[in-house]
């Protein structure tokens, strides 16, 4: 079956861009230290323009210092045509709304708040066997305590399904929201006026500001995330988990179009590499 959707590509190095790609994404969602310099951003904007692709600039959550940096970049983008800015911080939205009306705000995946952790799947599937957990021969037999079906339904949905939130988004000129491709069937229910972008194949699970702790450098930021990433190994993981810089991701190789086909304004954002 052929599905109808817009294709976007998240870029972080010069690459060939297929004709079917209509939009290029550039930026970082997770770290203020990775906000690009104005010249780098201009370079990518020109790259997209040359390739005749639309441009989306992705921004992280930021402190006030980050707002100042972004203000400079937005000043440039605001002079261009048809540029989207993905915000993952309501403060950035506030900045866009008040100062950069030419830019199209998009609600980022840090703010759409899906419950993503793939490990939950085991609970939904109720796969529990007998286990001996006491070394002193006292056997403890574990029996599944089944969760109500509402538990799984909740994990399939997102806060963006709430009509009161949707009304707010539309009233604030936010006409697109971004989500991750969960490893279970999703239930995203938004009106036609709100477009949905689905990131594929990497979904984020958690993020922080202490990459030194998460990636074992124990030192101030030297942008280790540009040099290496981790693959985590654990028996409880149903899909691969990765850590890069301050963020933990999962990889889901299957895109569940069936649960997305009802969305009229669907976009798939393909990330060839870990963000």
């Amino acid at each position: 079956m052929k599905y109808n959707f817009e294709k976007a590509l998240f870029i972080n190095k010069p690459t060939s861009v297929g004709k079917d790609i209509s939009r290029l994404y550039f930026g970082n969602e997770f770290c203020e230290n990775l906000i690009p310099d104005a010249n780098v951003l201009k370079g990518w904007y020109v790259f997209a323009e040359k390739k005749k692709k639309k441009f989306t600039f992705v921004t992280p959550f930021v402190t006030d210092a980050g707002l100042d940096k972004l203000g400079i970049l937005f000043s440039f983008l605001n002079q261009q045509k048809d540029v989207e800015v993905v915000f993952n911080d309501w403060g950035i939205f506030y900045l866009l709304k008040n100062n950069f009306k030419n830019l199209t705000p998009v609600l980022g995946r840090l703010l759409t708040k899906q419950r993503r952790d793939p490990r939950m799947l085991k609970i939904f599937l109720d796969k529990q066997s007998q286990v001996v957990i006491n070394a002193k021969s006292r056997k403890i037999i574990k029996v599944p305590k089944k969760g109500p079906p509402t538990l799984f339904e909740h994990h399939q949905a997102s806060v963006i399904n709430a009509p009161v939130f949707q009304k707010f988004l539309l009233s604030e000129r936010i006409k697109r929201v971004e989500i991750d491709n969960l490893i279970w069937k999703m239930n995203i229910d938004v009106p036609q006026a709100i477009g949905v972008s689905v990131y594929f194949p990497y979904g984020y699970i958690t993020t922080g500001r202490m990459c030194w702790k998460l990636c074992l450098s124990y030192a101030p930021c030297k942008k280790e995330c540009k040099k290496h990433f981790f693959r985590l190994m654990h028996k409880s993981l149903p899909v691969p988990f990765y850590a890069k810089g301050n963020t933990v991701f999962y990889k889901s190789s299957r895109l569940d179009f069936e649960s997305l086909q009802h969305l009229k304004n669907l976009r798939i954002v393909y990330q060839a590499e870990l963000p």
């Binding site: 037999i141 029996v143 409880s236």
Partner: peptide
Amino acid sequence: NIFLNLSYNTDQCEKGCMFYGDV
């Protein structure tokens, strides 16, 4: 010496973000 435990299967998932530290 035999105990029955009703649980949500959480031990197979390890505990939340603690899993990361364990890894």
